[in-house]
Each structure stands twice: as C-alpha cells, then as structure tokens.
Design a protein around this nucleic acid. Structure first.
Lengths: 197, 197
DNA sequence: TTCTAGTTTGGACACGTGTCCAGTCACGTG
DNA sequence: CACGTGACTGGACACGTGTCCAAACTAGAA
C-alpha cells in the first residue's frame, strides 16, 4: 500500500471509500471538461465531488495521478473491438490506429494531460504507466497477429507501437489533432507493413 | 516580442543582456546536473547565475521555457555528423538514431525534462517546440535521402520520425535508458526500411 | 443503545511558481 | 561630470500543490 489509498478496486476499498473515489473521478471528468487540464485543481475537483481536499488527497497522490487514472479508465471503457474474420494484419492495424485516434479525440484534454502526466515520477503514476503501456502493446500485438515473419515481428511491433506513442506526443504538443493522428498513422502502418506483411 | 525578452540571439539582446542570459543558461545546466530536473527551481538557477529571480524571469518565461531552451541548445551544439559516401539510407538512418540516442543519453535529465516541458502551452515554448520539431524532421529527411520511392517517402519519413518521438517518450517515462533507445530504434529502422529501401 | 474504529473534515502549514513594483545600478551620451 | 534610460534588484504578493492534525462524523458490531 502506497502512502495513498489506491483507487484501483482490487485494493479492497469498502463501499464507502469506493463511493468517495467514484465521486472524485466523476468530478475529475466533469471539471476537466469544464475548465481544461491546466486550470483544473484538485481543490476544485474535491469541491465538485463534495469532499474535502484532504480526502481527495487520501486517494489521489497528485494531479498527475488523477489524470493517469482517468486515462486508464477511459482506455478500459473503450476496449478494442473485435475485427471480422478474413482481415489481414495491415487492415487490422489500420482499424486499430483509427479507433485509438477516435478514442483520444473523444477527450483531447485528457489525452494531452495524460501524455504529460505519465512522465511524472510518483509511484502511483508508475503503476498506471506500466498498465497503460502494456495495454497499448497488447492491442498492437493482437492486431498484428501472426502474419509477420517471426524474426522481424518484434521490431515491427515496436515500430508501430513507438509510432503510436510518437503521434500521441506530437498531437499532445499541438502539431495536429488527435483525429488527424489516425490518418497519419494509417499511412505509417501501410509503409511499415509494406515489406513486413 | 513576447512578455519575456526572448533568449534567442537574433532578437537583438545587447551585450549586457546577452551576458545575463548566458549566465542563466550556464547556471541552468549546472543546477540540472546538480539536483535533477524536478528539484531545480528558477530561484536556485538565478542564485547560481548571480542574478535576481525577477531578472531570471525577464528572460525565462517559465521552468518549461528554460528546459526547452537548454534542449534546443544541446541539439544545436550536436549537429548531425556527415556520413561517408556510398552509405545507403538504412545505414544512414541507423547511424542517426544511434547518434541521437547518444546525444540524449549525454544528458538524460535534460532529455526527460524537455520531453515533458515541450508539452507546455506557453508561447515561448511554442516557438522552441516548432524549432526542435523541424530540426528532428530535417535530420531524418537528410538521412533518408532520395533512396525511397517518392510515393511512399513521406509516410516512411513520418514512421521514422514518430518512432523516434515515441522512443523519446518511452525513455522519458523510464521504460528504458536513452542509450538503449538507440539499439531499439536501429531495429525499427531495419524493419521500416525493409520494404521501402 | 453504546462503543469503537475507520473515514472525513476544516484549517493551517511549507514550499514553489510566476508577477509586480519602487528603488538602485550601470552605462552611454552630451 | 550630470543626466537619462534601460537593466536589475529585494521583497512582497497571489495562487496552487501537497501535507498534516485534532476534532467531528459515520457505520458496523456487540
């Protein structure tokens, strides 16, 4: 147990704590939509949730932790949809990057905030960073399937996953929208898979 | 002219101002090496430079601006070396990603700080973000050369550049070292160029 | 119903960030 | 040398972040 009570359900929160956490996270989503990720403060989130700041900090180590947690939940509430049979890897990957781009563009403030917050060094963010990273890898691995020669598969997987991370960073920096990111990544998928399908 | 006197030389700083800026940036590098990017404060940098905090803020809009500026200078003091004749694109790109990885691993604190700071939204960071982004693209474009078919070249360039950005983000998140990043990217280059050389 | 223990609270705190300002300093010009 | 102007200063400020704590509240068990 870290210095903060984790917000992950498997840590054994009782019903009362679970309700407090849910109120905080819901308030986080609402406050983020209302004022954006820079103007948001834990105090305003706590007020919106109807709890004290001290209670908010019982569950949220930091603003970074809040954003990482919200992003993780956003990811989990948007699992990768199953692809129809008979679709090759390039198509699956293309669908995936478009899907992920839409998921990010549904909540651009959260995506940008999370990109930044996942670079933070506190232990609660560490855990979420690992989970989120693993989820990304899993989605790309599933989409890539076994269509690539086994000797180049790890490098292809890494190329795609890094390109996705890079695109997320670029969109977060404001070079283009998260939605446009999907189109750019579709072209990248085509280029990467050209010699590797 | 922004609300802060830009630290870029072409903005016409006089000799006295130029000296003050140089002292601040040198102090920034030293303080970063001494205490790391999270513990560093503009106040300690100012003290190390022998100027007041208010003076430091005359030239530096924010801590983010300081890191972006230091990173830009680091890039510029490490221009991409010329490659010998007769080297193909894959080899040039491989050398480039290794060179860039070494450049980043020379100053991991700065690299991690800059990755985060370049996500900031203040105008002084905007300018540096554009410059740094353009420098990355230019380096990859030069290394890629004309060896790739013209129809796929933009996507290949983007794939490589995004993979580099993604790797930088991952290293900044602590998934692996900046030096290891070079080896990973070398494999990625090979995979991407496989069908595109 | 009472008791106990865990949860939450309001308020204060230390610290950092960036801003502001009247006064001082430094330098160039006449 | 005196003057004017821009650069710099010390100190105070407002605000946000995260921590701490004694007291109050809540819920479950006996």
């Amino acid at each position: 147990m870290s210095s903060h009570v984790s917000v992950a359900p498997r840590q054994g929160l009782n019903a009362r704590q679970t309700e407090t956490v849910e109120r905080l996270l819901t308030a986080g989503v609402e406050e983020l939509a209302a004022v954006g990720h820079e103007a948001l403060t834990i105090r305003t989130v706590a007020a919106r949730a109807g709890v004290s700041t001290a209670t908010a900090y019982t569950y949220l180590a930091s603003k970074n932790h809040l954003y990482a947690e919200l992003f993780w939940r956003h990811l989990r509430t948007h699992p990768m949809p199953a692809t129809p049979a008979g679709v090759d890897a390039t198509q699956r990957l293309t669908e995936l990057v478009r899907f992920m781009a839409r998921l990010l563009s549904d909540s651009p403030e959260l995506a940008a905030a999370a990109t930044r917050s996942l670079l933070a060094t506190d232990p609660d963010v560490d855990r979420l960073r690992a989970q989120i990273g693993a989820e990304f890898v899993a989605r790309f691995r599933t989409a890539l399937g076994d269509d690539t020669p086994a000797d180049t598969r790890p490098a292809v997987l890494e190329a795609l996953q890094l390109a996705f991370s890079g695109a997320m960073l670029q969109a977060g920096m404001g070079f283009y929208s998260y939605l446009e990111m999907g189109e750019r990544l579709a072209d990248v998928v085509a280029a990467v898979m050209k010699g590797n399908a």
